[in-house]
Design a protein around this nucleic acid. Structure first.
Length: 426
RNA sequence: GGAGAGGUGGCCGAGCCGGUCGAAGGCAGCCGCCUGCUAAGCGGUUGUGGGGGUAAAACCUCACCCAGGGUUCGAAUCCCUGCCUCUCCGCCA
């Protein structure tokens, strides 16, 4: 959420931001309501002050056994007036907050302005897409040949966009989790394993609600939401807290399953592991001081890249333009891994700085040493990495002519295996 | 699932037959005094958010004693609902 005071004082900047993000929202109504709210609040506060003073007076008269019925009568009217003001105030407050909850974060000045994903800008590449001396297969074909992924039975159990990992496939999934967690831990992140169903307040704290309800799986009775990313529970760890300056920065990493409805993506990636309703992910989350957050975004992104480098998977980093930038983010780098089966770079990580946007929603503050008052922290997060997609990348990049898949060196201690051999369909 | 206890400031802990309670007392923290140094001791001070005010402060004011409603001229204190914690019983990975 943006600071109402900030919006009030930076109308042009906010308008520009909305325009660059292709949002068609007018600020006029909000500003009017905001102004009205402040005036009304002043009036109500004055009356409350009067009531406080006179009520105390009544108390004194009472204790002296003197008559106070005139004052009581008078205050009854005042109280009714206050009640009326409060009702109006509540409506105005609701409408201003509701408005702000639907206004996206302001993109950082280094974010390229552009309409849609075609305007994203590639920042760097690492590794060379390998030349195969045979036609590289899609991961779902590899999975079938090796007997390590079963989509058909998964759809029997749950439905479309689910999968069963089997044998060496399941083991590879597990190895990736552990390798990624260990790597993040060695980069200074503290491992956490949070709840994966959460309450409404948490979803609102990180910005999934109220705007993106359609993306979420929901449990109706009692009301809970399945997390679409570990960002939700992990960022909310410090909801409604005031942290000490000396505690910052805080780095967390978490493995969790993630659940997404994928509404509106019916035609896309219908085959394979790329777009599933349930998938595993290792996430990195940071709480930092405002002045550090954009440097922290660079190191966060580097931490994610390091994993791909160690796995020997070619990738590129792109910075999202204003039109493609996520709702709560001020700046986002997507990391895209090379998939030989698709001859394309595909997103495998998304690293974002949310500045104070989530912190204000979730009310996460910190106190500077020797300074009065509090400030909102800046929050960041990034995948490090999406496990299913990493597994896809390994199958496709490390496939051999005979259908087998070589296990990347760094995973061998975890797998206790060097090659997933093709014993089923040689 | 059944029975009971409780949620107060950074922490501990009073208040809870309604008024002078933003809230006693203690601890911790900060400032000063004292002391050869340390400890002890003495005095002062210490929350968050909103609105107004200011160049910035000072300052004024409202709200906040788990959350949301209600009663009342007035609520930490009374009533209702919800959430959470603890103890006992049952059930269970």
């Amino acid at each position: 959420m943006l600071d109402p005071k900030f919006v009030r004082e930076n109308i042009e900047l906010v308008k520009k931001s909305l325009e660059n993000r292709n949002y068609d929202i007018s600020l006029e109504e909000f500003l009017k309501a905001e102004e009205e709210k402040r005036l009304l609040q002043q009036k109500a506060d004055e009356l409350r002050n009067k009531r406080n003073v006179v009520s105390e007076e009544i108390g004194k008269l009472r204790s002296q056994k003197k008559d106070a019925s005139e004052l009581i009568k008078e205050m009854k009217v005042v109280s009714d007036t206050i009640k009326g003001f409060d009702e109006k105030l509540k409506l105005l407050e609701d409408s201003t907050i509701n408005f702000l909850l639907n206004v996206p974060n302001i993109p950082h000045e280094t974010v390229p302005v552009g309409k849609d994903e075609t305007c994203n800008v590639e920042i760097r590449r690492w590794g060379e897409p390998k030349n195969f001396d045979f036609e590289p297969l899609n991961h779902w074909d590899i999975g079938e040949i090796l007997g390590i992924i079963d989509f058909e039975r998964a759809s029997k159990i749950a439905g479309a966009r689910f999968s069963i990992m089997k044998g060496s496939g399941a083991k590879l999934e597990r190895a990736l989790m552990n390798f990624m967690l260990d790597n993040n831990i060695s980069n200074g992140y503290t491992e956490v394993f949070p709840p994966i169903i959460v309450n409404r307040e948490s979803m609102q704290g990180t910005g999934q609600l109220p705007k993106f309800e359609a993306e979420l799986f929901r449990i109706v009775d009692p009301e809970f939401y399945l997390i679409p990313t570990a960002e939700v529970p992990v960022t909310n760890i410090h909801r409604n807290e005031i942290l000490n300056e000396k505690d910052l920065p805080i780095y967390y990493t978490a493995y969790t399953p993630c659940f997404r409805r994928e509404a509106g993506s019916y035609g896309k990636d219908v085959r394979g592991l790329i777009r599933q309703h349930q998938f595993n992910k290792v996430e990195m989350v940071k709480f930092v001081k405002p002045e550090d957050s954009f440097n922290e975004l660079e190191s966060l992104t580097n931490n994610a890249e390091e994993i791909l480098q160690k796995l020997g998977l070619p990738y590129r980093v792109v910075v999202l333009c204003t039109g493609d930038l996520g709702f709560s983010a001020a700046k986002t780098y997507d990391i895209e891994v090379w998939l030989p089966g698709q001859q394309k770079y595909r997103e495998i990580s998304s690293c974002s700085n949310f500045t104070d946007y989530q912190a204000r929603r979730a009310n996460i503050r910190f106190k500077r040493e020797g300074k009065k008052g509090t400030e909102f922290v800046h929050t960041l997060n990034g995948s490090g990495l999406a496990i299913g997609r990493t597994l896809v990348a390994i199958l496709e990049n490390y496939q051999q002519k005979d259908g087998s898949v070589v296990i990347p060196e760094v995973l061998r201690p975890y797998m206790k295996l060097e090659v997933i051999k093709n014993t089923i369909n040689p």
